[in-house]
Design a protein around this nucleic acid. Structure first.
Lengths: 191, 191, 191, 191
DNA sequence: TATGAATGAGTCTTCATTCAT
DNA sequence: GATGAATGAAGACTCATTCAT
């Protein structure tokens, strides 16, 4: 279908990198939508023959890992962006709460999180992917809070994401705000 | 083997309820251990013939739901117990933190949580099971805090459980304590 | 097809033993004919659905072993019969040679041997099957020769079978006779 | 790596014959080791790109045949050497037995035989390869025995090789010696 | 009531072969 | 001349579910 583009050159076919990306993307989509992953589903979704999925990935596990890594990357980027914005606002809790609320309002984001956590919970080999953002967040956030508080906030965010997955909607902004505000105040009074 | 005892009464055979319970228990165990569930595995684990699993449950989905309901019940009971103890201690945060830490140190408990959340994340029809404890906790806890705080604590606990699943060990007690303390202090100053 | 027999009773279906035998027989036939064995081929040959072959045998290897065991049994029986007849003739070499020549003239027998040896050569776990007749022969024959001579005769017979496989026809009777006669004379002069 | 040497000449690349030999050798090794043969395995073992295996051989069958021909050549050479040594010793049976025992003690030799016979048994088109040594042996040996005896000895040797394959070790030297001695004595008394 | 035989759909995976480059 | 991307057919195996008994 995408055989020819505006330049008239053939694409996709004989473009291994694009093909590989397409397969990973299809797998990531499927993981977000159903959590199930089969070669057949991936092939159909990516618009490639069945053999292509096994040609590019030695096993379904390898493909799953690649797809989850992609989701983890995105999650990482998003949370790093949020963290930076909060840092730019001198750690303003309202900013953090607002950003988080927006994040949790995005169905795709929440689904990506869920796919990541679900897969990681079932396969220990994938846990490092699910923990990547956590560790990164704690590190970034430690610039303006102590590590213990940073961990607690990260834990709270994970809980909020799980809650959004289970209820289908984010925690209301006031609750989110009060929770984050409370957790962040710790440092001032406890150290 | 334990088919007949000294009284001449048959045991698991001819005791449909016990058999059903055994099947559910076996299914719950398998969900905790691997997340996979097949009729064959359940039958073998429960020590019943293959046909029994389809005889007592119309479909595998139904059996899975029954197994998850059992896990949810247990989770419910455990957290209700913890809540009561905390209430008895007049909402002492240290007691809550200690109880929660003990809970998260129990591998089986954490696995049960993970099985419940994983299944619920993938199948919307099961979400009410995963939310059962959340709602109950908020209700019980609202006796000594405001609902918003109660929700935040519940969210935090979910996050901590997820974290325990992903790292294989609970958050350290001091961090847990400081987080819960911070969240609970909110009510005094914000309401 | 064989659903009903002269008694009007249904057969084959719901006759697990017969079904199992039919599958093994089909597998043995295929091993004799081509040396290859696939579930699909077996199912088609046996006239059963594909799933039946995996229902009765946990793996293709198990099915192959059962089929080879059947071939080995037959080989065993045939050679035991020959041995008995030779023993009845007081170890008359001419009788042995004639029987062996007849045996090697039977295309199916030779093919069965070849299937057995070929499979055993490729899979050490199957070697005991291929050696069964050898050991039995040596034991039986030791009644009228010394063990070393018995072994040599067995080796010679194996070689003759291999030769028949490769050339498509048995060694000519005179050659066979002279070989066996020579090997059997040993005992008189060497012990 | 060994693509270019000090003379500036390319080695395996740009040396089609060497490459072809390398592929055949790799295939022969694989046949000896597992009996299985795939383009991928051959390419990896030979250290050539996948395409090279199909470039030099029109089909896998052709490659297999070339590999077996190589094994047959080696077998031929070895047995010709043995035959010559025996002839040089004026047909001394002890020499023949010792040489054969050494041959059967060499795991690789026995494996090569097994690969050859196994393939030939399954594919009639390959039988001439497995018979090559037999015919050569009979011809060479007929210099000092009659053809019938030569055939019987060749049959015996094949049986001994098969036996070594199945048991993992050669027939013991005394048994081997007595067998060969007996077979060779025939000529003196029968002719 | 209870069971295990039965099966067809679907799983992952391998691979010979083709062919564009 | 050489190569590796590509794919469709086939492989072993699993399993929920049905149903005869």
């Amino acid at each position: 279908m995408t055989e020819t583009d505006s330049t008239g050159a053939t694409r996709s076919r004989r473009d291994p990198e694009a093909r590989r990306r397409g397969i990973v993307q299809a797998a990531a989509d499927l993981l977000m939508e159903s959590g199930d992953l089969t070669h057949r589903q991936v092939a159909e979704r990516a618009g490639v023959p069945l053999g292509a999925t096994t040609y590019y990935f030695a096993s379904l596990g390898e493909l799953r890992e690649a797809a989850l890594a992609q989701l983890a990357d995105r999650l990482n980027d998003d949370l790093a962006r949020i963290t930076h914005e909060v840092a730019a606002a001198n750690g303003d809790v309202a900013v953090l709460a607002a950003q988080l609320h927006a994040y949790l309002s995005d169905v795709d984001q929440v689904r990506a999180d869920a796919a990541l956590y679900t897969s990681a919970a079932q396969d220990p080999a994938l846990r490092h992917l699910a923990l990547r953002w956590f560790d990164g967040f704690v590190q970034l956030t430690s610039a303006w809070t102590d590590p213990s508080t940073a961990r607690n906030i990260a834990v709270f965010i994970d809980g909020a994401s799980l809650h959004a997955t289970l209820t289908g909607k984010p925690l209301d902004l006031p609750t989110l705000t009060s929770g984050l505000k409370a957790l962040l105040r710790t440092e001032d009074e406890e150290a």
